[in-house]
Each structure stands twice: as structure tokens, then as C-alpha cells.
Design a protein around this nucleic acid. Structure first.
Length: 896
RNA sequence: GCCGUCUUAGCUCAGCGGUAGAGCACUCGCUUCACACGCGAUAGGUCAGAAGUUCAAAUCUUCUAGACGGCACCA
């Protein structure tokens, strides 16, 4: 069989279809009932989303684990799905409605709007699932879930009702984060910050009744003064002591408000007097509660001033009103000053609009019990076990300890409508269905709460709602819950540890009694080439699909897996090219093996048989085995980059550069045994690589002579043949062969030294020379056994082995470890000056090391306190260096 | 303000108590019959700076400088 000259990722990526059609991704492919299970649920991407590099990274890491465990025989489930993404979808549908029909959501009404949203989801919502197939993600599509599926929605209502009934969900009037553009409340976590350097601090003077004095307050939001209901000072502030209890004529409003004393006020800051606007500031709200102040709301849901702001201001946008208030104060002579002031403003995470703190009635989850559940699980079980542990465990714990209640209502139409109904008197009835609510209400006509739940409320149930849990009145036990919960690991970005991870821990533990997952792998951020997070506005994004097209999915995956766990990385095309080249290298190594495989076939590796094989064969088996062991060990602790590095060097250095080269003659001469053996080693190595490069390895594996389902892990004995289900190499200790490793190391060292002489002496590769080696009898035996290979790889014509060198003066020499000496007679070719310099450099290098060793060994403390083994090691090394040095010095002298 | 991370070869990054590593780039040499997406051989680092702990520090501690992240506050 002859392969194309270069790897074509496009062809290989066609394997996905076969895998999916054969049901390889479903846990049911595993026929061994005693198999342990392994499960991962995907962080559900937004249905509005298309694949970005963060997904590609996370999916790669999850897929590596799923494929690895599946090959090990675990009944493996990686469950896919998408999130309904409340605000995002709502916005898309609003836009579409406006563009296509010039209508607003109100024009079409809620029911029609929701219908359109579903239509939108059906039409565009599978972009990402299509892209995931390209990635090679081995997810079980038969279990795909959507957060608004019927049963997942029932789970949401069940949890809501249960939490409400026990008092952990309540409705209340609070200062919340309001986005005037989206016209919805946001949780604290959805609010980001933006620093504004050109902010202003405005000082307003309020006249005090019965005096000729004014009291000056400073504010960054002057328009809110229209809603002031007090001025507060610190009780111990002497400057204002006599004003406490007096009344202020609040300008522009005709209202009278009191001057009150409250510890909240910092006498040192600003003027020491603070305007109190309980309906528009969280701190003021608390002050207002303490003093029984009126809560005067002066803005509407679009951020415009309302009737309470007075006729002069009603209908003005908050920023217009701000200017007008300042202008009016100026006219009245009550504007003290306006200072430049750097402020940080809260902005809506999604639309970047400045968020308005506003008094509003919303639904909340009380976090006391939830927090305790999460802290408990962390303290008692160390769950979640974050990888990397630092800094996430501490940040997570600290966040929990300072947790505030969670605002869960959203003023949207797309999402899970809150299962609460009201009668005409405003009594609330919370139930799973309207019918139940009506029963509770004694049959009265009811109206459902118009709000929907925060998207993260339903995602918080993802770890168990996806397995069929619908709640106490429905299903709380299913085979999938039993088999796959707790899941083994969650792979996610650090931006949603609070939003999502914490809530899954709380809600899963509370409602199923189980933890959602043991381990959490926290990925870093893939940054743009400029070192900044990828974003549309910066235009520094790298599209994974483009990378797939350019370098292949496999190369992209290995690059992503090569990033240290949790570390941020600047995107770099050069590195992905490295792995594109790596794929091609493996392709060509296989190509070589297959070119000479006429009568060959892969066969099981047998330890007893191996013992009688040549050193090179035993060496590659030993290297393969160590690599297998190390790859397994690295993956156990999610050290993907370590595994990648191991595989890269095994394939490139050990297998290609040395093993193939050592065996080339044998194999090209048509030795079927040699050919079968190298194919068998290659086959094992492809299995090791498969989780990282699924397409390449499947494409090649299927071409190997003798592959079949017999190579599968026993759990998949009857499945169609695929490397996906082959048994993952464990690394059987029997194949570890220290002797062979030492022997081949000696051969490699010798060849390298000879090549060095050739290069340094500028001897053309076409000139073959005689090589003399003097060394121990053991060494001579090894070299003699590998003579042909040494001659070939060193481009030598003859190998002369002896106990002591007998060579002409015009020879280039080198000293190997163990005191072995090498000489290459170069009559007429040698440049004595150059040779002397070459040897001198080596002496100098050794001298530096010798000095350091001497320093350490002459330090009595070291010899006394360091482990004896360490001391012996250094002494041996010193001896070795001294031996080499004197040998090289003799060689220099011999040059004359 | 509080908590935390990073600073290692020209570039991008591993290593995190016992002789400084990789890939790419650079230099030199190769149409060696798998691969120039290749082969061979070199060169390149006082591991940000300072002090400390230790027989031993890139690795632990403290401080300094620079880059950055999270949380809180922001009249």
C-alpha cells in the first residue's frame, strides 16, 4: 500500500460521520456490564453562539478525556447540549422582527414573540453543534439537551417551587442593577466595570430652612437629586452638629427633606454631607430604611425621568436630565463647583449600557443555605477539586463567604417564565402549573408573573436535569442519574466559576444529595496575537474553523492541548504549524512502514518474545512503554501539555529519528518480521495519540495490515473496527528494559559524536571514513552488534573496535561517557588548528562543570548534610569528567 | 482598599528545592531511495531586581519594580 506524500486533514476528517453513525459515542457501545462509568457534561454553549477558540480549547480537553477513558474501557458519556441564552436570543429576535417587519415585540405580543424565538432557535441554533462535529467531539448526540426542553423546564419549575415553599426564594423590593437598554434587571455577576477618566463630581448647595446657610452635597449623578428624601451627615461631625434635625428646601422640587445623622457618612470624604436617594442607590436605600425615609423613584425602565421627577424633567433621558439639573442649579446660584473626577461605572456585560441602580420588585434566591452547602462540600470533600488548584480554590471559597442574594427574575420573554401567579389582590401562588396554582387560589382567575428566570438558574441544574431529573412530582431517579451522576470532571472557563460552577454545586447537592462533579479543570484564556482577550471590537479574534481549514483539526487540537493547564496563551500560528508538521511526520513514518509491509501484519507484543529481540527493538518497546505510562499519569492529573510533549518526542525523536533509521535497511530489504514489529509498535503509538489527534490516527490505523476489532478493548468486542475503541496502552512493566536503553544510548552517543566531528571538520557527507572506537568489552559487543546501523548513520566505511586506540596523528577524536574513545583518521582532511580548538572548547566546558562540582564536594556541609546518594552521584560525575578531560588533553597533545 | 497571578534563550512557552528545557527563528552543512511540513551539527539564558531560609534556590519566604486578574467601594 502506498500513501499520499503528505497528510490531508480534509479526507481524514470524514471519519466523524462513520463514528457517529456507528454509535461509538454513546455509552451503550460498551457491552461489559461491569465497566466503570465515566461522564462529563458539556458547558452548554449559547444557541446564539458560534464556535470560538475558548470552546475549541475546552472541547479538545473534554474530548481527550472522553476518548482516553473510553479506550480504557470505561462506559463513557460526554453529554452535549445548548443553553437558551435569554438576553442574547431575545435581542436577536427583536432585531429580526424590526428588520423584517418593522415591528416591536409589543406589536406581536408575548405568545407570538416566543413562537418566533423558537423558530429562530430551530433555524440558527444548530450552528455550534455542526461545528462541534468538525472538532471531532465524541459527544453522545442521542442525549443532546436544551435548557428549554420540556423535561428540563419542568425541572426548573420543580426547583423553583421547592425553594419557594421552604422560603429560599422570595420576592422583594430591592435596589437592583437595571439595564435601561435591555430593560431588565441583572445579577451582580452580569455587571462589569468601566473606568471613566473624564467623570465629574458635582457639588450642589441645598438651602437650610430657618437659616441663611446652605449644605453642600457632592454627587456623580446630579439627576438623582430629584429623588432625594434626606441629607445625611456623620453624627460626630461638629461642622454639621447644629444642622441635624433641620429641614432642607430641596431645589427644583419644592419638597422639604430632613437633615439626618448616620454613621454611614464618612466625614472625611467630600463635604461630609451626603444626599440620600433611597430609590436609586443601595447605600442610600439602607440609610432610608434605618430612618424611615420615603423611597422616591424618579426614573422609568428606559432610564427616562418619570412624573415624580417633576414636569420640568419628565420624559428626559437620565443624561439630559443630569445636564439640566446642573444648569438649573447654576441659574439659582446653588452650584458650588464641578470637579473632574475619575469614576468607575457599572456597565451591562452584554450591551455595555451604564447600569442604573434602581428600586425594583424582583425575585431572589436566599443564599445562606446555598452558601453553606457549597462551603461544606469544599471543607468536607475538597470538592470541587480545581485544576489548577491555585488560585481557584481560594477565590471560589472567598467569594462564597461573602455571597449576597441572587436576583433571578429577568424582564424578558424568552426563557423559563416564573411559575408564580397572582390574583387581583396581588396574592401570589407558586406552583408547577397554572392549574395547580388556581387550585391553591381556590379557583380564582390568575395572571402569571411576566418575568422569566435568569439563564443561570436553569444551567445550575444542568448536571442532573440533563439526566432526566424533573423533580419531586416527576422523576428523581433514572438509570442515567444512577450511572452518570456525579460526573467525573467539569472543564470550563474561569469566567463562569461563580455564575455556573458554584450554583451547580449548590443546586445539585441540594436536590439530588450528590455532588455534580469531583474535579473542575479551569482553562485559561486564549488571547489574540496582541496579547489581549479576543474580541470583535479589537478585531484580534482567531476563528477556529479557519484554523481547521488551514492546519487541520488535529493540529489545532494538539496545539490547544499543549497549553499548560489553566494558563493563558497568546495565539501563535507558528506553533500550530509545528503540530501540522507533526501530523505530517507521523503520516510519513506510517507511509514508510507501509511501503515495505507486503508480507507484514501487526501482531500482539509479547514480553517473552521481546527478550530475544535485538537491542534496538527492545529499546523502542521500552521507550514506548515508558511513554504509555507517563501519558496515562499525565492525563490522570490533567497535565495535557505534558502528555503532548511526551508523545511528540516519542514519535519524532525515538521512533522516527532513531528507530526507523536503525531499522531502515532491515525493513526496506523486505524482512517481514521487522516490518510486522515496527507496524505493531506504531499501532500502539497511534492508540496513545488518538485522543489528541483522532482523525489522523484513525485514518492511518485503518490502513495498517491486520487491524480489526480484535484490538479493541474487550468491552467493545463486537463494534465495527475503529481505533476509537482500541485498548489504550497501559504500559506493561515487563517491556521496560534498562539494558537495551543503555545500549542504544551508547550507540546514539557514538553516532552523534561522529556526526559532530564531520560537521565541525567540514567533511562532506559524501566522504565515508573509518571510525576507531576503544572501550570496554561490553561496549564493543554492543557496537559490534549494531555495526551496520552505525556505519550507515555515521556515514562510515569501517568500524574498528579495540581496547586502545592505535591511530595516526592526523585524527579527530572524541571521548564518550564511560571513557570510551573515538577517533576518525582524517589524513589530508584534518585542520589541526581547528581540531585543537574543538577539543579545547570541550575541555573548557568540562572545566566549568568540574569547578562547580569541586566547590560543592569541598563544602563539608554539603558532604555531611546532603543525601548520600546525591554526594555519590556528584563524585561519580566528577570522576567521569576528570577522566574525559585528561583523555581529551592527551588527544590535544597528540596533535603536536 | 482586599485577595491573587505572572516576569526563564530573539519570539511563544514548559519546568517550580538537587548539573537550565522545548518549538519556532538564527548560524553551518545536506536533492541520504517516509517526510524540505524534511535530515544532520552548532550557537544562544548571571531564570525581573534585592535580601533571607537551606549543604543546595529559577523553584521556598520577604521586599522592590513592571504586567495582569478577581472582589469590594466609588457622596
Amino acid at each position: 500500500m502506498e500513501l499520499a506524500k503528505a497528510f490531508d486533514p480534509n479526507t481524514a476528517e470524514g471519519w466523524y460521520k462513520t463514528w457517529e453513525e456507528n454509535g461509538f459515542f454513546a455509552p451503550e457501545i460498551n457491552e461489559d456490564e461491569t465497566s466503570p462509568t465515566y461522564s462529563i457534561v458539556i458547558p452548554p454553549p449559547n444557541v446564539t453562539g458560534s464556535l470560538h477558540m475558548g470552546h475549541a480549547l475546552q472541547h479538545t480537553l473534554m474530548d481527550v478525556l472522553a476518548r482516553w477513558k473510553r479506550m480504557q474501557g470505561y462506559r463513557t458519556l460526554w453529554l452535549p447540549g445548548t443553553d437558551h441564552a435569554g438576553i442574547s436570543v431575545q435581542r436577536k429576535v427583536v432585531e429580526q422582527l424590526k428588520k423584517d417587519e418593522g415591528k416591536s415585540p409589543i406589536d406581536v405580543g408575548r405568545d407570538e414573540f416566543v413562537r418566533r424565538a423558537w423558530k429562530w432557535k430551530d433555524q440558527y441554533g444548530n450552528t455550534i453543534t455542526t461545528q462541534m462535529r468538525r472538532e471531532g467531539a465524541s459527544v453522545d448526540w442521542s442525549r443532546q439537551r436544551f435548557t428549554m426542553d420540556e423535561d428540563l423546564s419542568l425541572a426548573v419549575r420543580s426547583v423553583f417551587v421547592a425553594l419557594y415553599d421552604e422560603g429560599n426564594i422570595y420576592r422583594g423590593l430591592r435596589i437592583v442593577n437595571w439595564c435601561p437598554k435591555d430593560k431588565t434587571v441583572l445579577s451582580d455577576l452580569e455587571v462589569k466595570e468601566e473606568t471613566k477618566k473624564d467623570g465629574k463630581l458635582t457639588y450642589l448647595k441645598y438651602p437650610v430652612q430657618g437659616t441663611d446657610r446652605t449644605i453642600t452635597v457632592a454627587t456623580t449623578r446630579p439627576e438623582t437629586m430629584l429623588g432625594d428624601t434626606a441629607v445625611a451627615v456623620n453624627p460626630s461631625d461638629e461642622r454639621y452638629a447644629d444642622l441635624i434635625g433641620k429641614v432642607v428646601d430641596l431645589p427644583l422640587t419644592g419638597r422639604e427633606i430632613p437633615i439626618i445623622a448616620d454613621e454611614y457618612v464618612d466625614a472625611e470624604f467630600g463635604t461630609g454631607a451626603v444626599k440620600i436617594t433611597p430609590a436609586h442607590d443601595p447605600n442610600d436605600y439602607l440609610v432610608g430604611e434605618r430612618h424611615g425615609l420615603e423611597q422616591l423613584l424618579v426614573m422609568d425602565d428606559a432610564g427616562k425621568m418619570n412624573a415624580a421627577a417633576g414636569t420640568d424633567f419628565e420624559g428626559l433621558d437620565r443624561f439630559e436630565a443630569r445636564e439640566k439639573v446642573v444648569a438649573r442649579f447654576d441659574e439659582l446660584g446653588l452650584l458650588e463647583k464641578v470637579e473632574d473626577y475619575e469614576i468607575t461605572l457599572p456597565i451591562c456585560e452584554r450591551c455595555k449600557t451604564i447600569v442604573e441602580p434602581i428600586l425594583s420588585e424582583q425575585w431572589f434566591v436566599k443564599m445562606d443555605e446555598m452558601r453553606d452547602i457549597a462551603l461544606d462540600v469544599m471543607r468536607s470533600e475538597g470538592v470541587p477539586h480545581f485544576f489548577p488548584q491555585v488560585p481557584h480554590e481560594k477565590v471560589y471559597t472567598n467569594w462564597l463567604e461573602n455571597l449576597k442574594d441572587w436576583t433571578i427574575s429577568r424582564q424578558l420573554w424568552w426563557g423559563h417564565q416564573i411559575p408564580a401567579w397572582y390574583d387581583d389582590e396581588g396574592n401570589v401562588f407558586v406552583a408547577l402549573t397554572e392549574a395547580e396554582a388556581r387550585t391553591k387560589a381556590g379557583g380564582k382567575e390568575l395572571r402569571q408573573d411576566q418575568d422569566v428566570l435568569d439563564t443561570w438558574f436553569s444551567s445550575g441544574l444542568w448536571a442532573f436535569s440533563t439526566f432526566g431529573w424533573t423533580g419531586e412530582n416527576g422523576v428523581t431517579e433514572t438509570p442515567d442519574l444512577d450511572n452518570f451522576l456525579p460526573t467525573d470532571v467539569l472543564v470550563t472557563g474561569r469566567d463562569i466559576i461563580f455564575l455556573w460552577v458554584s450554583r451547580m454545586v449548590m443546586l445539585t447537592k441540594k436536590f439530588t444529595g450528590k455532588i455534580p462533579f469531583g474535579d473542575v479543570v479551569v482553562t485559561g484564556t486564549v488571547l489574540g496575537k496582541d496579547g489581549k482577550p479576543m474580541s470583535k471590537s479589537r478585531n484580534n479574534g482567531v476563528d477556529p474553523i479557519e484554523m481547521f481549514d488551514k492546519f487541520g483539526v488535529d493540529a489545532t487540537r494538539v496545539y490547544l492541548a499543549s497549553i499548560a493547564t489553566g494558563a493563558d496563551i497568546k495565539w501563535n500560528d507558528l506553533l500550530i504549524e509545528t503540530y501540522r508538521n507533526f501530523a505530517n511526520k507521523i503520516w510519513n513514518a506510517t507511509r514508510f512502514c507501509l511501503l515495505n509491509s507486503d508480507n507484514a501484519s501487526i501482531r500482539p507484543l509479547d514480553a517473552a518474545e521481546a527478550r530475544s529481540m535485538a537491542a534496538a527493538d527492545r529499546w523502542i518497546l521500552s521507550r514506548l512503554t515508558r511513554t504509555s505510562q507517563a501519558v496515562n499519569k499525565a492525563l490522570e492529573t490533567y497535565q495535557y501539555h505534558e502528555a503532548v510533549s511526551l508523545l511528540y518526542h516519542f514519535f519524532w525523536d525515538d521512533f522516527c529519528d532513531w528507530y526507523i533509521e536503525l531499522k531502515k535497511d532491515e525493513i526496506t530489504s523486505g524482512d517481514a518480521d521487522a516490518s510486522s514489529f515496527i507496524l505493531s509498535v506504531l499501532e500502539q503509538a497511534l492508540r496513545l495519540l488518538h485522543p489528541f489527534m483522532p482523525y489522523l490516527t484513525e485514518e492511518l490505523w485503518q490502513k495498517l495490515p491486520g487491524v480489526g476489532r480484535g484490538l479493541h478493548n474487550p468491552a467493545y468486542a463486537n463494534a465495527e473496527q475503529t481505533i476509537m475503541l482500541a485498548d489504550f496502552p497501559k504500559g506493561d512493566r515487563q517491556f521496560i528494559d534498562d539494558i537495551a536503553e543503555n545500549e542504544i544510548s551508547a550507540v546514539i552517543e557514538l553516532i552523534t559524536k561522529i556526526r559532530n566531528i564531520r560537521a565541525e571538520m567540514n567533511i562532506s557527507p559524501s566522504i565515508k571514513f573509518v571510525v576507531h572506537v576503544a572501550g570496554s568489552s561490553v561496549l564493543r559487543e554492543i557496537l559490534a552488534a549494531n555495526e551496520e546501523q552505525i556505519l550507515k548513520l555515521a556515514r562510515a566505511s569501517k568500524l574498528v573496535l579495540s581496547t586502545a586506540l592505535v591511530v595516526p596523528k592526523a585524527s579527530a577524536k572524541a571521548v564518550l561517557s564511560g571513557g570510551t574513545e573515538v577517533a576518525v583518521p582524517l589524513e589530508g582532511l584534518i585542520d589541526f588548528e581547528k581540531e585543537r580548538g574543538r577539543l579545547q572548547t570541550q575541555v573548557e566546558k568540562l572545566g566549568i562543570e568540574l569547578q562547580r562540582l569541586d566547590r560543592q564536594l569541598s563544602n563539608g556541609n554539603f558532604v555531611e548534610r546532603a543525601p548520600v546518594e546525591k554526594v555519590r552521584e556528584l563524585r561519580e560525575r566528577k570522576e567521569e569528567i576528570e577522566q574525559q578531560t585528561s583523555a581529551i588533553k592527551l588527544n590535544i597533545e597528540a596533535l603536536g
